[in-house]
C-alpha cells in the first residue's frame, strides 16, 4: 500500500546495461550479473544465496498448503502498488485462506527485452518490502527474457508454501445455514485503481489499490475463532464471484443485506461513471469470512481491531433456501439475484 518511496533509499545498482537484454535470460555473464546485483541484494537469505537449482527446506510439522499464481497487470505501476507487490501479497493470501502460515515463495519473471532495469529494480524493492511485511522468504527463482513485443513489460509467477496449524479446517464447502458472512473492508479498490489508471480513460485523481498481505489478519481471526468455516479473498470477479463460489461449493444459499457492503466514496464515483458494479470488481487486500452465527460478533470485533480490516462488516448470512444462489435484499424491500459475472467488466454507456 505504498507509493514506491523505497526507491529513494535504494539506488539502482550499476550494471553494464540500462535495459533488459536477451542475454540477461541466457544463463551467461549477464544473467549472473542480474542475479548478483539486482536479485540477491533484495531477496537474499541463506537458502537463496546458495544459488542451487532448487531450494531445500525444512518445514514445521502439519499439513502443507501450496499455491501458485501468475501476475499480468496493465499498468504495472498503479496507485497504491505495483505488479511485484501484488505477486507477493496475492500468493501469500491464497495460502493464508485455508488458515496456513505462509513461509516460502518462489518467483519466476518473464521480462520483455528493453525493459528498463530501473523499473525492474523498483519492482524488486517493493517485493522485498512486501515479503518482509508478510514474513515470508523468497527462496528460489527464475528469469526468462523474451523478444520485445512478445510480452507486456514483465509477468511474474509466484508459488508459495505454508503450513496449516493443528485444528484448523477451512473449506469453501463448509458453509452452513445460520453462518454469518463477514467482509474485511471496502470493496473494488484494486480493480478500480487499475482501471482508472489505464491510458485513455481520462481520470485525473485516482483511487488506490488495497493490495496487502492478509496472513496476519487470518492468524488473529483464527485465534479468536478457530471454528471459522471458510475464508476467501475476493480477487478477480469480486465479492459476487467469491460468494457464488462459496454457495455452490457448500450447496447453500447466501443472502446479502444490500446496504451493508462498504465502498469508498471515490471508488463508488468511479464505478458509477463507468457503469461498473463494485460487487464484481477485484480486491487484493480483503477477505470474506463465513463463521458460525454465535461467533460472528467476536470475529467482527477482532477484524476491526486490525488496521487492514477497520471497516469490516457483517454483510449477510448463509441460508438453506435457494442453494447455489446469492441474493440481496434491496433497500425498498425487494430481492434480487447476485449472479456470477459473464466476463470482464467493461466500461459501459448504457
Amino acid at each position: 500500500m505504498t507509493d514506491f518511496p523505497e526507491t529513494l533509499s535504494c539506488p539502482v545498482p550499476i550494471l553494464d546495461h540500462d535495459t533488459v537484454q536477451l542475454a540477461h535470460g541466457a544463463g551467461g555473464r549477464l544473467s549472473a550479473q542480474l542475479i548478483e546485483k539486482l536479485f540477491l541484494p533484495r531477496f537474499g537469505n541463506d537458502t537463496l544465496n546458495r544459488l542451487e537449482d532448487q531450494a531445500t527446506l525444512t518445514l514445521p510439522s502439519g499439513r502443507v498448503s501450496f499455491s501458485t499464481d501468475t501476475y499480468v497487470v496493465d499498468p504495472i505501476f498503479f496507485p497504491g502498488g505495483n505488479i511485484g507487490e501484488l505477486a507477493v501479497n496475492g500468493t501469500v493470501n491464497d495460502i493464508a485462506m485455508n488458515g496456513a502460515t505462509p513461509l516460502f515463495l518462489s518467483v519466476g519473471f518473464v521480462l520483455e527485452e528493453g525493459l528498463p532495469l530501473e523499473t525492474l529494480h523498483r519492482i524488486l524493492v517493493s517485493m522485498e518490502a512486501a515479503a518482509k511485511r508478510a514474513g515470508v522468504q523468497i527462496v528460489t527463482g527464475d528469469t526468462k527474457v523474451v523478444n520485445k513485443g512478445t510480452c507486456d513489460q514483465l509477468y511474474i509467477n509466484t508459488s508459495g508454501i505454508g503450513v496449516v496449524p493443528e485444528g484448523v479446517h477451512l473449506s469453501a464447502a463448509r458453509c452452513e445455514p445460520g453462518d454469518q458472512v463477514l467482509l474485511s473492508g471496502t470493496i473494488a479498490d484494486h480493480g478500480m485503481a487499475v482501471l482508472t489508471s489505464r491510458k485513455g480513460l481520462s481520470f485525473q485523481s485516482r483511487v488506490h489499490s488495497d493490495t496487502a498481505a492478509l496472513n496476519h489478519l487470518v492468524e488473529a481471526l483464527l485465534e479468536v475463532c478457530p471454528r471459522i468455516h471458510a475464508l476467501r479473498d475476493p480477487t478477480r470477479g469480486g465479492v459476487a464471484t467469491t460468494l457464488n463460489e462459496l454457495a455452490a461449493a457448500s450447496r447453500v444459499g447466501i443472502q446479502l443485506r444490500g446496504d451493508s457492503i462498504p465502498v469508498k466514496p471515490d471508488v463508488r464515483g468511479a464505478c458509477e461513471i463507468l457503469g461498473i458494479d463494485p460487487l464484481y470488481v477485484a480486491n487484493e487486500g480483503k477477505l470474506v469470512a463465513v463463521v458460525p452465527g454465535s461467533e460472528a460478533e467476536a470475529v467482527l470485533t477482532a477484524m476491526r481491531s486490525r488496521p487492514e480490516a477497520r471497516e469490516a462488516q457483517i454483510i449477510g448470512e448463509v441460508v438453506s433456501d435457494h442453494p447455489g444462489t446469492v441474493t440481496m435484499t434491496t433497500g425498498l424491500g425487494g430481492r434480487r439475484i447476485v449472479d456470477m459475472p459473464i466476463g470482464e467488466q467493461l466500461p459501459r454507456i448504457c
Partner: peptide
C-alpha cells in the same frame, strides 16, 4: 472541465 464524483475526478 474536471468533474468531481465524490472524490474521483474525471474530464
Amino acid at each position: 472541465g474536471h468533474i468531481d464524483y465524490s472524490g474521483t475526478i474525471s474530464k
